[in-house]
């Protein structure tokens, strides 16, 4: 293992977003605050049906997880896209880094960005509620897995996209629908039964629900089933990134 090389790439990928904090950390925090203000006054003191928690408390973990996932995706996809457009990915290919080391560094930086965003968001949002941490391990497990899955999808999306148009297509027609229909803003129990079934095929649903469970101690999914699905999805994502980078998919002719 070229640990030092892997560490260098990880710090490059992390410094890239730390250098533009306004865009990468402050902006997502502001967006989340605005969502919260809107829903606070729109929903008032309403409770989430069947779950017996204030809607406001229900919303916060979902928003945090959504921001984590979006930022993890943005970190890897933008890096690879810019690399392609600036012809910069050749430096990665010329360096003595294996596909596994590259994957590790990219996903590590995605997780780092997701957690920094999550901590900032929680610091901003939690004072408005009486929420507290119920199961820290669940929060960490789903947080890490969610950012790995989304960071990995960002890597694959970045490799697949030839232009920023391709990337926008991916974002608007796959990532956004999956995130919005994953139960950030509602409990699946509020949906008609057919839609509830559909939701169980959305991997993001398990991530958001599990993450929220860590704060509220209630959820829509069976915890052991969710853990199994999320673990599998995480490993599959890492494996896919590793193998695709190794073959130089859409990067090397």
């Amino acid at each position: 293992m070229n640990w030092y090389g892997c560490w260098t790439l990880y710090s490059r990928e992390s410094r890239r977003f730390l250098n533009v904090k306004m865009q990468t950390i402050v902006a997502p925090a502001l967006t989340a605050v605005m969502y919260l203000i809107v829903f606070r006054y729109a929903m008032g003191e309403r409770q989430v049906p069947d779950l017996d928690v204030p809607y406001f408390n229900f919303l916060i973990p979902g928003l945090v997880m959504m921001a984590m996932m979006q930022n993890a995706f943005a970190n890897t996809s933008s890096s690879i896209m810019v690399g392609k457009l600036m012809n910069m990915q050749i430096f990665l290919m010329m360096a003595p880094l294996t596909a596994f080391e590259v994957t590790l560094a990219f996903l590590g930086a995605a997780v780092t960005r997701a957690f920094i965003v999550a901590i900032v968001l929680l610091l901003v949002l939690v004072p408005f509620t009486d929420m507290h941490i119920e199961h820290l391990w669940m929060i960490l497990f789903y947080g890490v897995c969610g950012s790995i899955i989304m960071g990995g999808m960002g890597m694959i999306g970045g490799m697949w996209s030839k232009t920023f148009d391709d990337m926008a297509l991916l974002n608007n027609f796959i990532i956004m629908p999956l995130t919005f229909l994953s139960g950030v803003f509602y409990s699946v129990k509020q949906l008609p039964e057919s839609w509830q079934a559909v939701n169980h095929f959305n991997p993001f649903f398990y991530l958001i629900d599990g993450f929220r469970h860590g704060f509220l101690n209630v959820g829509d999914t069976d915890p052991s089933q969710a853990i199994a699905i999320v673990s599998m999805a995480t490993l599959a994502t890492i494996f896919a990134c590793w193998k695709l980078w190794q073959t130089g998919w859409r990067l090397k002719d």
């Binding site: 070229n2 030092y4 090389g5 560490w7 260098t8 790439l9 710090s11 490059r12 430096f91 990665l92 360096a95 003595p96 880094l97």
Partner: peptide, 10 residues
């Protein structure tokens, strides 16, 4: 510095 690091060289 980054390039050197990626080659595994401090």
């Amino acid at each position: 510095k980054i390039m050197s690091g990626m080659f595994g060289v401090k």
